[in-house]
Design a protein around this nucleic acid. Structure first.
Lengths: 133, 133
DNA sequence: CTTGCATCTGTAGTTACTACAGATCGTAGA
DNA sequence: TCTACGATCTGTAGTAACTACAGATGCAAG
């Protein structure tokens, strides 16, 4: 009993992953090479569709492709993986928090520069002066 | 009276911009092609050094190369540019704020997933389950 | 059997650099 | 003046994660 097979377009719509991106994931080995029709079109199994949706969700959480590779391996094992997943998540969370910090630094600098710039009617721009040092 | 000339290494150390990056900026037209010694080594003028430091500061504020191209043009003109600079800064600031928002969304999702994962000793990982949907 | 949308492969472009390899330059010391 | 040897040179390729084609087929409905 072979399960239902899906075309790349169906899988794309179901997971909201671009067709080109799906093929890209296959090329880099993030997705397995699916079966093909006689004519050469890809035919995805339900499990493969599920894997793609896993990848999509993880991408939406900002995990990198390499991190997702690890997550997929962990998802396939049963020992110790929850701890490993937890560690990977913690690392990623820290990365995200670092980025937030950095962006907030930018935000406040930009805000103060912007304010100086707006309240100025002279020919010289304080923002530009600032950048020249 | 020709001003002092600087080697690429001196300029690199002075601005904290990688030598390869300086050549890259020249290749893409962000920096002008400097004079050369008889043997072909680059010789930067004080003004060119200043321009590179301008670029570096703007990059540190998160402006894109294309935005910096605009900023450099504006820095060279004298009409209306403060208003333009202000507009460009506002756009960039909005981008930064959008990114912060998105990262905060990620942060809170990751935090809640991480918590579930940590308080779990069962064989199945709630984080993985979650990603599979 | 034709029409026309869906897929196919393969390559190149995106952003902002970084990392070589292999050759030459420039300068301080002998 | 010759010789090291570090600094630069050019040119190309790699990074992350896609996206965008071109040109050729597949497939299903009428």
């Amino acid at each position: 009993m072979t399960g239902k097979a899906f075309s790349i377009g169906e899988v794309s719509r179901a997971t909201d992953v671009n067709i080109e991106t799906i093929r890209y994931y296959e090329r880099i080995g993030l997705m397995p090479a699916p079966d093909r029709t006689a004519g050469g079109n890809r035919q995805y199994s339900l499990e493969q569709k599920r894997q793609l949706s896993f990848i999509k969700r993880a991408r939406n959480l900002g995990f990198s492709i390499d991190q997702i590779r690890s997550l997929l391996i962990m998802a396939d094992e049963n020992e110790m993986t929850c701890r490993q997943v937890s560690a990977l998540t913690a690392t990623h969370l820290a990365d995200v928090q670092d980025k937030i910090k950095e962006l907030k630094r930018l935000e406040s600098k930009l805000q103060s520069l912007h304010q100086k710039c707006q309240s100025n009617n002279a020919p010289d721009c304080p923002m530009i002066e600032d950048l020249f040092g």
